[in-house]
């Protein structure tokens, strides 16, 4: 999946036509365990890179999700309201959380590509 870029906090971003789709990595989904709730922002909310954009909850934990890039929220994944388990099932696909209108494309260069992230994960173990 070479179109994804990753942060060290295990968020990913996929950019298409100036819109950045954001979610959490397979590794993060595995670490969190069964996701029971995702608190999503309202559309129109603007966030700086590394700012808090969502909260993912499992039964006994809550984890803040940070925006990999700056931008304005244009869409949130309402599927997660009904079925938060989608985050576990398809973290990098249907389990996406937020779509941002990218405000600074240069920030993408600060993120890891898939290979670099894989190496980063190996370093964690």
């Amino acid at each position: 999946m070479s179109d994804l870029k990753y942060t060290e906090q295990h968020e990913w971003v996929r950019v298409k036509d100036g819109i950045a789709e954001i979610g959490i990595s397979d590794y993060a989904a595995e670490q969190l365990g069964d996701v029971v709730y995702v608190e999503l922002p309202e559309t129109g909310f603007t966030v700086e890179q590394s700012g808090e954009i969502a909260v993912v909850e499992s039964v006994k934990a809550a984890s803040e999700i940070y925006a990999p890039v700056s931008g304005e929220v244009v869409e949130v994944n309402t599927v997660l309201d009904e079925d938060p388990a989608t985050v576990n099932a398809e973290p990098t696909g249907k389990g996406w959380m937020v779509r941002l209108k990218l405000s600074n494309e240069e920030e993408l260069a600060t993120l890891m590509d898939a290979d670099a992230y894989k190496t980063y994960l190996e370093g964690l173990e």
Binding site: Y37, V59, K60, A61, A62
Partner: peptide
């Protein structure tokens, strides 16, 4: 729904 509570969410 314990994630609302202090023992998990602490200052939040």
């Amino acid at each position: 729904l314990s994630t609302r509570e202090q023992h998990i969410r602490r200052e939040k």
